[in-house]
Amino acid sequence: MMENELKSFDFFEVTSSDTELITRREALRRSGLLAGGVFFAPAIVGFLKGCKATTRDYDYIVFNSDQVDALRIIVDAIVPETDTPSATQVGVPAFIDQVLSRNSSKQTREEFMVQFDAFLEDAKGEFGKSFHEADSQRQLEYISKLHAQAVEPAEDPVDRTLSGFIMWMKQLTVVGYFTSEPGATQVLRYAAMPGPYKGCVPFEEVGRTWAT
């Protein structure tokens, strides 16, 4: 067996591909994301680096400019600017464009766009104007409501199309963000050359979750 042999199997597995559609808490639980399954995450990485990945320098392939505006609002609701950068600031919208254009099947890409359109359409109904033109507080409430539907299943069955889309976005955003240099090094702890392995150290010596 090869390098990382164990890490590829179930008890180490995150999902078969982080770009796959996973929309529901149940699905996440089954895939091991919730209970006990995830650790030693495979070195999931992003292409984000420097200015190359900023929206200014990146030519979008999948999204038009209105969609990019909406995308930025959504990813920044998921990972906002605090004392560390926001998702948009580290280039997550470009990351998502590249995952969809370069690394996804046509079917996955189309499914994403169908859900994205449905999201924007529903928001327009709600706000009476385009999502990206709405009041920022209302944008955030709208996203939070859908997210809550996804992670806290209601008693009664509800239409999960939109909340599923938010979870898909959340997954892409989290992966894109924490594999970026700022996400990996400022929010998490990253060591390119850790040195000799120590099996057990006081948590304070590391201080934050390891990026890899």
Partner: peptide, 10 residues
Amino acid sequence: DPWELPANDD
């Protein structure tokens, strides 16, 4: 480093 590889290392 992770961020020097294309999307997800995929």
